[in-house]
């Protein structure tokens, strides 16, 4: 499904701020796999997601999605088949546009073959209403309100809905619940779990929550220094505890796991 071969990325090459964010990383995902990623600060977790999404082009290596080589495909082309959620809930939606217009944008984009002057039809609106009702946040009755009036949790739930309105080939989640209050975070996480399971979406999720990393999805990656140091799935993963994970990390890298947010969370 997703095949990453030996990708590297160095930021600010040739300056004092030079930083190799990814070094020769390879990863293969089967269709329908839900992979969680944990790691220290600066391990390259977000960089990996950004490389797949096309925020920048990798210095070397290949990225293939489905049958297609997307290594040099620009970001806006990849996002036709890749859904993305950022940590900042403000990043995923247009604040002065209404809920309905935001959904229409997400919906109309995926039907790319339709002409650029297509509009939202009444039937589309009905469909939006049904999907919004599934979020169970009362948003279906506020469809003509600007998104800027919604709370962070509501905006993130809406972004999730927009990203999965037409099922993407790949869903990238970059700590998408980290900036929400605990209640909203649980809610958005639950919605994520539901939609990924229902549509069998292949998914890469960065998280800072160790127990979440082990309980959600089917496979866990641990990253350090721009590479993958631990890759567990199946029975081995099922039997693993957070302490096992920490010990494995120390064994893998020769030092303790260091992530400020991770230490604060449960």
């Amino acid at each position: 499904m997703l095949d990453i071969q030996n990708i590297s990325k160095t930021f600010n090459p040739g300056t004092v701020n030079e930083k190799q964010a990814l070094s020769g990383l390879s990863l293969h995902l089967e269709a329908g796999e839900f992979v969680t990623i944990i790691g220290s600060n600066g391990a390259g977790k977000s960089t990996l997601l950004n490389a797949v999404a096309g925020v920048f082009y990798v210095d070397q290596g290949r990225i293939t999605l489905g049958e297609k080589d997307i290594t040099f495909q620009p970001e806006h082309r990849r996002s036709q088949v890749i859904g993305r959620l950022f940590q900042d809930p403000l990043k995923g939606t247009a604040p002065t546009m209404t809920i309905e217009e935001n959904l229409a944008l997400a919906f109309l984009r995926t039907t790319r073959k339709s002409n650029p002057f297509s509009r939202i039809s009444r039937r589309d609106k009905e469909q939006f209403r049904e999907k919004l009702a599934l979020l169970d946040m009362g948003l279906e009755d506020r469809m003509t309100q600007p998104v800027g009036l919604l709370s962070g949790g509501q905006r993130q739930a809406l972004t999730l809905l927009m990203a999965t309105l037409t099922t993407p080939e790949l869903l990238l989640l970059d700590e998408h619940t980290a900036a929400l209050d605990p209640g909203a975070a649980d809610k958005v996480l639950e919605l994520t779990r539901q939609v990924v399971a229902r549509e069998k979406i292949t998914c890469l999720m960065v998280t800072h929550n160790m127990s979440q990393a082990l309980t959600l999805g089917s496979r866990t990656l641990m990253m350090a220094d721009g590479g993958i140091v631990l890759d567990v799935s199946g029975a081995e993963r099922g039997a693993m505890t957070v302490d096992d994970l920490l010990r494995k990390f120390r064994e893998g890298t020769g030092r303790a796991l260091d992530n400020d947010r991770m230490l604060l969370s449960d």
């Binding site: 806006h76 990849r78 950022f86 939606t93 002065t96 984009r109």
Partner: peptide, 16 residues
């Protein structure tokens, strides 16, 4: 409209 409103968002929603 989305381009003027939130440029981060438009690239992630396949708008050039």
């Amino acid at each position: 409209r989305a381009t003027g409103d939130n440029r981060d968002m438009v690239r992630a929603s396949s708008v050039n």
